[in-house]
């Protein structure tokens, strides 16, 4: 269980990362780099939620691994479909 202070810091970081991702939505041209950055931000936020809010940091590796791998895997699929679209 994280401390209140750590939870607060993580929460504020996630809010800031979300605003950065929303800023990218205003960019006129979508590129693979932009998609990579936005999805990387999503992966970071998801890892924070899994490890600290869900308290899986010290949980059995199987469950932590499943939850930690979820967003990166989905992000990879999304990126792949954009890569096919661009090609």
């Amino acid at each position: 269980m994280p401390t209140y202070r750590l939870s607060t810091i993580l929460w504020l970081v996630m809010l800031a990362l979300t605003c950065i991702a929303a800023y990218f939505a205003e960019q006129p041209q979508l590129s693979l780099t932009l998609i990579g950055v936005v999805l990387f931000i999503t992966v970071i936020k998801a890892a924070m939620i899994v490890d600290y809010f869900m308290c899986l940091r010290d949980a059995p590796l199987f469950w932590r691994g499943l939850l930690m791998a979820y967003v990166p895997l989905v992000s990879l699929i999304i990126t792949a479909t954009y890569a096919i679209d661009f090609s």
Binding site: A21, L39, A46, I49, V50, V74
Partner: peptide
């Protein structure tokens, strides 16, 4: 309580993917 909390965090986790997928990446 932990079970309910984890369910709520899952709902948040799903929206974290939905947000860029539907709103940002276009």
């Amino acid at each position: 309580m932990e079970s309910g909390a984890c369910y709520w965090h899952m709902v948040d986790l799903l929206w974290l993917v939905l947000f860029p997928l539907v709103y940002v990446l276009h």
